[in-house]
Design a binder for these strands. Sequence first.
DNA 1: CGCATCGTATACCGATCGTTCTATCTATTT
DNA 2: AAATAGATAGAACGATCGGTATACGATGCG
Lengths: 185, 185
Amino acid sequence: MTTRPGPRERLLDAARELTYSQGVQVGVDAILKRADVARRSLYQHFGGKDGLVAEVLRSDGGLDRYRQVMNEAGDDPRERVLAVFDELDVITSRPAFRGCRYTAAELALTDPAHPAHAEVRAFKEGLHRLMAAELTRHGHPDPDAGADQLLVLIDGVLAHAVTRPGARPALAARALAEAVLAAPK
Amino acid sequence: MTTRPGPRERLLDAARELTYSQGVQVGVDAILKRADVARRSLYQHFGGKDGLVAEVLRSDGGLDRYRQVMNEAGDDPRERVLAVFDELDVITSRPAFRGCRYTAAELALTDPAHPAHAEVRAFKEGLHRLMAAELTRHGHPDPDAGADQLLVLIDGVLAHAVTRPGARPALAARALAEAVLAAPK
DNA sequence: CGCATCGTATACCGATCGTTCTATCTATTT
DNA sequence: AAATAGATAGAACGATCGGTATACGATGCG
């Protein structure tokens, strides 16, 4: 018999689900109800809603998922990068898809002092490093600029898929990713 | 001496500014105060906040701005398309830049029944037609797919610029737009 | 045992949300 | 001049917001 996770984990899980499906503007009451946790525990563990939201982003493990997709694609940097876009096509085709959690948070949170902004930035920079590393191994002449292009493609797919579900933007982006990979060595 | 615009125009202007700088979650009170308009006028003209937000998107004239940028670039489809990305570099470099108004609205409004969603979709499809028309004139083998790629690039630039201001994503995307235009004829 | 810690449950706070209402004023129209 | 429509000002509505306070139960450790 498995023991129930503690309030902290339950809060993180509930907040992760609800802030994605309902946006970061979900009420704390909804999160508390979903987590089946006392109101006080939220403020005890995270100091408030802002802290909880930031921790959701920090502990989301988005970078690990990118790493895993690439690792399953083998060793060739080219295949590893293209695998990301194949996976994006799967993700954006799911009915529950609601866009990139980080971009959505960045746009929804007006206050520049919100702790979530730092997590968004950290994620995007980590992703940039991830892609630049692949391009370096691939022999790309300017891995930094190439990674910028890949990030634009990724963000574009995730943003565009929200508004035009039938467009399969990941497939369109995949062809452009091949252009990035085809840069003269 | 110029006469002051009516309450309807003042409401639209105020809502346009505030929903962009503060997000669609701005309070009605803030909009009313900025527009210097009676509370009742809002519900008289737009039926409620949802109607006002939807009308802001509908009357925003975003497509006209794209058209204008392309017209100023001359007749050559290639120059016209690339001019869009040059303009995006300018827009995303402005301090007041806060992302794409339509994408932000789409992500922030959870309720699928919100009237704003239809306006977002109409805008994106209009933009798609705009780009496909240029590619057709340019002799692109698959204008529809090419337009998909351009839209991914545009959405990617607008989304990415919010999180990594120094990255100049429009320049990265411009190079990829050239790849779209270089498709075999 | 005795005590502290953690979690729960619930009541409550002031503030703000979108919306409806009444009342008054002004401009145009008949 | 009278009537009508549109706009203004402001109170008030119930609901919900994030956050705090109080009281009680369970658990762990000395």
